[in-house]
């Protein structure tokens, strides 16, 4: 899998911490592998919206990658509840269902961005950098700029 220049937290230079929410273990593992190629760290995982809320409280991640179609509580509702409690939460919806209504609903309820499955690592990488803004920094590879 392609490696990317590591994206780190500006405040302390530590790896960006992610909460990965998807009812498919396969999808979560794939996202975790992609996150590793960004130099990130999986702080927690959840398989439904309810667990996502409790995992957010427990792990306080820098970024949440949130599926939409899930049992018990869907991703958009979970995103809304998290953002209500934590307006600073950075939630990126990651779903195969990418029609405009869904995207608008997610953004209106507090999500910061949307990435359609199957996830292209290079697309997610750019979205992560955008969503982090000044709170993220791209680490220079050793010897770069020499």
């Amino acid at each position: 899998m392609e490696q990317f220049a590591a994206v780190r937290r500006s405040k302390d230079g530590q790896p960006v911490r992610y909460l990965v929410v998807d009812d498919s273990v396969f999808a979560r593992k794939n996202l975790a592998r992609i996150i590793e190629t960004f130099g990130g760290q999986v702080a927690g995982e959840a398989g439904d919206g309810m667990t996502a809320i409790t995992e957010y409280e427990r792990t306080t991640p820098d970024i949440v990658l949130m599926d939409i179609t899930m049992p018990q509580m869907e991703g958009i509702e979970a995103a809304e509840k998290i953002v209500k409690q934590h307006p600073e939460a950075r939630i990126v919806m990651v779903s195969s269902v990418g029609y405009q209504e869904n995207i608008v609903a997610a953004l209106q309820r507090g999500a910061r961005h949307f990435v359609q499955k199957p996830v292209k690592p290079e697309v997610l990488y750019e979205v992560i950098k955008y969503v982090l803004g000044e709170d993220g920094t791209v680490a220079q590879a050793a010897g770069a700029g020499a």
Partner: peptide, 13 residues
């Protein structure tokens, strides 16, 4: 899931 989601996106549009 991915195939259904992508197709539904088209049909919804």
């Amino acid at each position: 899931n991915q195939v259904a989601g992508n197709a539904v996106t088209t049909l919804n549009d």
